[in-house]
Design a protein around this nucleic acid. Structure first.
Lengths: 222, 222
DNA sequence: CGCCATTTTGAGTTGTGTCAACCACCGTGG
DNA sequence: CCACGGTGGTTGACACAACTCAAAATGGCG
């Protein structure tokens, strides 16, 4: 995905950024930026979950990704942002301006390679997303999506309650499916005892073995 | 796509690169690098066409992109290349090592933002690819693919002969389709008088209006 | 309690994949 | 020069996963 997933804490950068960082608290549904806004800042998610959305002229919508604490939003845009970004939950972000980043780079050129590495990681993530979108079945996509949420929230064990702050439509538009297909496959996972859906807005993994297997199996093994 | 499409000739960079550039002539099917090779160089395509391929453990193959003259290959990899890259035609590339790039950046920090902008453009291209793969119908993908070839070879007019150096399997694996679906839709375009397929390895656009429309229309308008 | 938005479930359709022939092109060798 | 074989491309018949349209159920909230 386009947001930078699980950016390693940029320890080498803390020094140069610490002087100028701004914190910002935002409520759910707060818009961080719109597509087309002048791109001038990087946002590091401290807490909360953000959603990046791209809407096309014909109305089709692509949810480009979700950003969790530790992720960095805003890398790899050109002069203007390439999508909308808003908060799904109350959240907090740390902001650095691109000017600060460039200033830091001119003082310590080795940061450039770090930035490029971050961009590289982001491209790699986009890669994986493309493969997911073009080669995987609905069930694989959904299983993979749930696993990625478990991974990013650090709840990679059975019977932990995991937040699902995005609605079915968001999941569908992220995975290139319809809400009905998402719903049907979630139900199927529940019926098979692989996950539980105790209430809206959360899920529980009951059999992480089989969920992992579903996420990775090739389409013929449904 | 992952290769950097239509990188504007980096005029500001010529000065610093000219001293160290190496040219290299390669034949068709020459491998530029393999996935996993230590990544240390950038390649600018001077002439010819390259193909970037990623093969997955289960045998699924993704053709990540094609590189045309002016494109730059090798940006945005981490320590090692993320895919295989080989030539589809006899070709020529200019090579710069990453060390040279970093050295250039330390002398002229403003190059860093250029590099980052290039990475950003690449991410943007990956974006478009994901949308293509998850939202577009087979016909839209193929029409869009043919249009992109026309654009990249500068033949955006009717009745020009455009090279199609990749085989159906490459196109299929690039667009997330099967060769049969590619073939059927190409035939449909031909029957409708939108393109012509005079011989293997090339095509001709007969009605660029309608081809453009097909590439952009939403799936319900076939 | 009743309303509204979201999610689930159902029934039917369809686009694309699969499997299997068939065809066209092209270099090779008799 | 033509028969041959091989590769890549096309066409056909069929299956099935996911989409569409429609309706019912659930959950949250005033």
């Amino acid at each position: 995905m386009y947001l930078f997933p699980n950016a390693a804490a940029p320890t080498g950068q803390d020094h140069s950024r610490a002087q100028t960082n701004l914190g910002r608290v935002v409520g759910a549904t707060t818009v961080l930026f719109h597509e087309g806004d002048q791109a001038g800042a990087l946002f590091e998610v401290v807490c909360g979950v953000f959603r990046a959305t791209k809407v096309f002229p014909d109305g089709r919508r692509q949810v480009v990704g979700f950003a969790y604490p530790g992720d960095i939003i805003g890398l790899g845009h050109g002069a203007s942002y390439r999508f909308d970004c808003d908060a799904l939950t109350p959240a907090r972000v740390e902001i650095s301006t691109q000017g600060e980043m460039l200033a830091a780079v001119s003082v310590r050129p080795e940061l450039a390679s770090r930035l490029i590495a971050m961009a590289a990681a982001e491209i790699g993530a986009m890669h994986d997303l493309s493969v997911l979108l073009c080669r995987k079945s609905a069930m694989e996509r959904i299983a993979g999506f749930l696993m990625s949420l478990a991974r990013r929230t650090g709840k990679l064990a059975n019977d932990e309650r995991i937040a699902l702050p995005m609605c079915r439509a968001d999941i569908a538009d992220h995975l290139g499916l319809t809400i009905e297909t998402v719903s049907r496959n979630m139900t199927k996972l529940k019926v098979r005892g692989i996950v539980d859906l105790p209430s809206r807005g959360c899920f529980v993994i009951r059999d992480i073995e089989r969920l992992t297997q579903l996420a990775e199996s090739d389409p013929s093994v449904h």
